[in-house]
Write a protein that binds this DNA or RNA. Structure first.
Lengths: 334, 334
DNA sequence: AAAATTTATGAAAGCGCTTTCAGGCTTGCC
DNA sequence: GGCAAGCCTGAAAGCGCTTTCATAAATTTT
């Protein structure tokens, strides 16, 4: 593990008896080089264990081989898994990624973006976030951009859509088919696109089944466990009747489930629950939580690969990510 | 949000009527500059919204303002929270961090390290991992290094110790004081230092209480939920008697708890459980899980700040991280 | 008041690499 | 056999910045 090795292109030029231009050419395959020369250079490179200086490359060539990732809520499982996927996606390339956290706050987000741009990233992945559409369009005009979890019309082919509406629709329908009628929905923060989509999916499924949505059964949460717990607490206190809960994410489902436990209500015997995101832990909840899941790792991987293609100017298509309901034991029929 | 702004030091030199050397000097405070000149330069900088090109700085000065973080298991909650803490720790500095994932595999780890070094990081944080001591010492001789969660004698003041032994001891003692005698321990992967420490803490607490450890009650897990579930499954199948479980992490505790549920055993009435790490979700387990917790966010933050000090040659001390038992409802007395 | 310091500033040389630009050699073609 | 066209390759000019080194101006010393 010899690490501080600082061989330069000049060293290997000298050793192989050519000019540095030629070395650069074999390195980047930017112009034809006689096979014989090429081999000599290659040999010198491996002999000296040469590694190009990324900073010099960046300065001279303008390519930094770095992609930036704007995350929200690092430390929240779902996002972290996606990040992991991104790391995987760039694994075999020569790119690295740098992360900056927006924490779902507009000014932090700007700040994070500036940090990223100060590093002259070659491309950018934006995970959710609150930046307005025109800002995103503006950004996209300056740097290759892939957006996960939002759908910007003008950037349609650069958006990895998550189809929250349909997923929520399916989950709600699943509950309806189990003959639930009074279904609580704990929404996410309604300032977030995905939270809105999920609520709309829920609403639509109800309507399609001829059930009039009851506004009293829709409580706005904030994606955190505590808000799920509070929501149910409130409902119970008000004496509302319900037999099922659809939470806009698993964390709130956990909270809801705890409140039920505190009040001696059994899951799924008394109340059924469906979550969203299918966090790894959900399979180990008591009882195991039925939840809308996605291949989050793949999402990150796909986004990263797409970005790499975009940077290189290669064609790519972003699939629509399918959600599937992980059916476990938190839902019972009536 | 004008982003592609590419003002150079030359532009601002021109605008303020000085040479680029002088601009560089006010930027880096590397030599005295007349106050008047200084102000003029500063004004030009803010007028033009100048941002230094980090790559040029790196190339010329050798400082990259990047710290590398070698993580294991990105996507596992505990590590992610620590990463988040690191991001916070460098937040107000001009540093960025790049992450590379070792996945607890030696060759991936080497690979990740090389990626990091290829970027000429100014400093490195290593989170756990399997690299042998001498490699770490070697690395430390080449780059400022902070190690989280391992204790390397030769690098003692650069290690952020987590004191697994004591924490495990305390947890076990808590169970003993609740009059449990037959306490199962589900260990982590015993190739990991921390798993060993935790087991030893458990063993010692038992001995100190005059309880002869029963090897049959110690099962090696792998830190994942499934191994916790399997461990208990196995114990039950073999008809072992026990009244409490101490799992080396929360994930395995979740698994264990699920198996108990499957077998109709109540927690904590029939069996008590203590976990380790106090993941955010644990407070919402059914029942809420008693677990050994640490300020993981702070761990990351402290490590990052310490690294920054180390880089700048400033003195710093790494506190020993205290663990505290988050007492909830998964433990009952006998 | 001249000499010795100290201060503030500019010129210029890199840092390691990419990329014209131009020139020397081969080929191919009429 | 002569000329255009191709192919390889080296020299050199940057990329934007830091850092000697040198110099001019201001200050202190004797």
């Amino acid at each position: 593990m010899d690490i501080a090795k600082r061989t330069t292109i000049g060293d290997i030029a000298k050793r192989s008896g050519v000019s540095i231009s030629t070395v650069s050419r074999v390195l980047n395959q930017t112009a034809p080089v006689a096979e014989e020369t090429r081999q000599a250079v290659l040999k010198a490179i491996s002999d000296l264990n040469y590694k190009p200086n990324l900073f010099a490359q960046a300065l001279a060539g303008g390519q930094t081989r770095t992609i930036g990732v704007l995350t929200q809520n690092l430390g929240s499982h779902l996002y972290d898994v996606i990040l992991h996927g991104i790391l995987r996606g760039i694994n075999s390339s020569h790119y690295s990624s740098i992360f900056a956290d927006g924490s779902w706050e507009a000014d932090r987000e700007i700040n994070a973006l500036q940090t990223l741009f100060a590093r002259q990233i070659d491309g950018l992945v934006i995970l959710g976030g609150t930046a307005p559409e025109d800002v995103l369009v503006e950004i996209a005009s300056q740097v290759p951009l892939i957006i996960i979890g939002r759908d910007i019309a003008a950037l349609s082919n650069q958006c990895l859509r998550l189809d929250d509406f349909q997923a929520a629709y399916d989950a709600t329908q699943y509950l309806i088919r189990a003959r639930h009628k009074r279904i609580v929905h704990i929404t996410g923060l309604l300032s977030h696109q995905d939270a809105i989509e999920r609520r709309n999916g829920y609403l639509q499924a109800l309507k399609d089944a001829g059930i009039e949505p009851d506004p009293e059964l829709i409580i706005e949460g904030d994606f955190l466990e505590s808000s799920g717990a509070m929501a149910i607490e409130m409902l119970l206190m008000r004496g509302r009747i319900f037999s099922a809960i659809f939470a806009a994410n698993d964390q709130m489902a956990y909270g809801a489930r705890l409140t039920l436990y505190r009040h001696g209500l059994r899951v799924p015997d008394d109340v059924s629950i469906i979550g969203f995101d299918d966090l790894g832990y959900s399979a180990y909840m008591i009882p195991p939580l039925t939840s809308v899941g996605r291949q989050s790792l793949e999402i990150g991987e796909i986004a990263a690969r797409a970005l790499l293609s975009l940077i290189k100017g290669e064609p790519f298509t972003l699939p629509d990510i399918q959600s599937t309901l992980a059916i476990r034991e938190s839902v019972a029929g009536r």
